[in-house]
Design a protein around this nucleic acid. Structure first.
Lengths: 193, 193
DNA sequence: GTCTATAGCCCGATAGAC
DNA sequence: GTCTATCGGGCTATAGAC
């Protein structure tokens, strides 16, 4: 990695942390520069604009997520195992990249129609497609119930998984493995006795 | 209602809509004024600051929500019926006040330590307490499983309910009643066959 | 009670020295 | 490649006329 690439990575990490904590709109390029330890003008040698930083944070994150889904949750798996793999990969990715995860969850929905984020939107759609495909395959093979719309179940479990980043603290005794297990328990078998 | 009160209400409604669409930080007082049909300076005859508008949007909303919980979900109800009532009231409130709901979900988490929002935070805590109490009562009486932490189940169902405001459109054939039913089905009985 | 005008500040981004 | 300095503009909030 060249010195330039290292600095770019520094900027992306500092930005992701600030964006996650206070939102993109409330984060200034001066704050990013201060976190990295340079003056704000220096950032513009690495990125053409603040918006380009946001875009790269989200796009890099989604590329990694999509690659992990493809590897860990191939279509050959039966729907239950595939759903488990998707949940595991998602929670592991959220644990590993908590800031980018928050930025993706908080900001991408509001940026859908901005052409600058077309790549990110495309990747997010592909990732979502893997969830939907899994749920529909499970309905077709009879392991999932057909009386609840795919879209509805998807939103429920998807939000449970991704928003755990906002309430679960990594130092908790309650681990990612615990969360994965409880998530699959609730969503597949229910909370009633 | 006096003319002043009517104007205040206009401002609160216009603000809630803008805050929900673009976030509080990205909404300007000029945009609020334009939506109401006055100049920005005129807003300051009704509210001392932009932040006071945000505070009143959220606090008024939460007071209404809390009152509805108290009325529709008294502790005398058995836990299953009480959970159903909470979900029903929440979804009905979200449908009726979609903008304030989004503001509450999106912005309050980031404002927790701001002393300006102490009242809102207190109301939100009281509302949350009703969910937790219901879940714990259900565990004690044996209708809910005890191997999933209360906090975890609460976050799952709470997020499913509140975030539906971001994906369900009121004009959908899929109604609030459908959503209430499917939410209780999934979270109590599970998605597996 | 609403207007016009603007103070005072902070923003993203740029220019040019080193 | 990073600095200092600053431009042009948008922001919240205020002042004072009507």
């Amino acid at each position: 990695m060249t010195a330039v690439e290292l600095r770019r990575t520094d900027i992306l990490h500092a930005s992701a942390e600030l964006f996650a904590d206070k939102g993109v709109a409330s984060t200034t390029v001066r704050q990013i520069a201060a976190r990295v330890g340079v003056q704000s003008g220096a950032l513009y040698h690495y990125f053409p604009s603040k918006s380009a930083i946001v875009r790269e944070v989200v796009t890099t994150y989604l590329e990694q997520l999509k690659a992990r889904y493809d590897e860990a949750a191939p279509r050959e798996l039966d729907p239950r195992a595939r759903l488990r793999a998707i949940v595991e990969v998602s929670l592991r990715t959220a644990e590993e990249s908590p800031h980018a995860t928050v930025v993706y969850q908080n900001e991408l929905p509001n940026l859908r129609d901005d052409p600058d984020y077309r790549d990110a939107k495309k990747l997010a759609d592909e990732a979502q497609q893997i969830w939907l495909e899994t749920i529909n395959d499970g309905k077709r093979t009879g392991v999932f119930r057909e009386d609840v719309p795919t879209k509805v179940f998807h939103r429920f479990i998807r939000d449970a998984v991704w928003l755990s980043i906002k309430w679960r603290h990594p130092e908790d005794a309650y681990t990612t493995e615990d969360l994965t297990r409880d998530c699959l328990t609730i969503f597949l078998d229910g909370f009633a006795t």
